[in-house]
Measured scan of single mutants.
Amino acid sequence: MPEGSASLQLAVGDRVVYPNQGVCRVSAIDVKEVAGQKLTFVTMRREEDGAVVMVPEGKVLAIGVRKVASAE
């Protein structure tokens, strides 16, 4: 991610809310080559049905992904 860009610090195992998809758990953060460029992807699995969603790390905030609020 370019320096100075806002990002959401995620780790494998974090629970997040993905708008219009529901609650997901981060299952992987991997670098993949797409069209000759190396990009970091956040892979999330929906808790409702296990569907897998992959989002480029740089788009996580723009999409509206946020961490699940704690009970505290």
Rank of each mutant, 00 (worst) to 15 (best):
S27M: 13
P19C: 00
L8H: 08
Y18V: 13
R45N: 08
P19W: 07
V53K: 03
T40A: 07
R25E: 08
G36K: 03
I29T: 01
M54F: 08
A28Q: 08
V55P: 01
M1W: 09
A71L: 10
M1N: 13
Q9R: 12
R46E: 01
R25G: 02
V16N: 00
P2F: 09
D49I: 03
R15C: 00
G36R: 03
D49Q: 01
V17N: 07
D30A: 10
T40S: 08
P2H: 12
V52T: 09
A11L: 09
D49A: 02
R15V: 10
A71W: 09
N20E: 09
K32R: 13
V34C: 02
I29S: 00
A62S: 10
T40V: 13
A6S: 13
F41T: 06
G22E: 04
L39R: 07
V31M: 07
A69W: 07
R15P: 02
E48D: 10
V23C: 00
K67N: 06
R15N: 04
R15A: 05
E72K: 09
D14C: 01
Q9S: 09
R15K: 09
L39I: 15
D14Q: 03
G64W: 10
V17F: 15
D30W: 15
V53T: 07
L39V: 15
V16G: 00
S5I: 13
G36A: 02
S27P: 00
M54S: 12
M1P: 10
V26S: 00
R15L: 14
S27T: 15
G4H: 13
E47S: 02
V31S: 07
P56H: 06
V60Q: 02
G36Q: 02
D14V: 03
A71K: 10
K32H: 13
V12S: 01
A71R: 06
A71V: 12
F41I: 13
C24N: 00
K59C: 15
K38T: 09
T43R: 04
V60C: 03
A11S: 11
M54A: 06
E33K: 06
V26E: 00
E57S: 15
C24V: 04
V53C: 03
E57Y: 15
V16E: 01
K38P: 07
R66L: 15
V26C: 00
V23K: 03
V53N: 02
V12R: 02
A51I: 09
D49E: 03
F41D: 00
D30I: 14
V23E: 05
C24M: 14
Q21D: 04
V31D: 05
V65L: 12
R46A: 05
Y18T: 04
A69H: 11
R45K: 13
G58I: 10
E33D: 10
T43N: 02
A6M: 10
R25V: 14
S5M: 10
L8Y: 08
A51N: 07
E47H: 03
D30K: 08
V16W: 03
S5H: 12
V52A: 06
R45V: 15
Q37R: 09
D49S: 04
T43Y: 13
I29D: 00
A62T: 08
P56A: 07
Q37T: 10
F41V: 10
V53A: 04
G58S: 15
V60H: 03
S7N: 11
V34H: 07
G58T: 14
R45H: 14
S27Q: 11
R15D: 03
P19E: 07
D14N: 02
S7G: 12
V31Q: 08
V34A: 04
Q21N: 12
I63N: 10
T43K: 05
E72L: 10
A71Y: 10
V17E: 10
T40M: 08
S7Y: 10
E48I: 13
S70D: 14
V12P: 04
I63A: 13
M54I: 14
A28W: 05
I29Y: 02
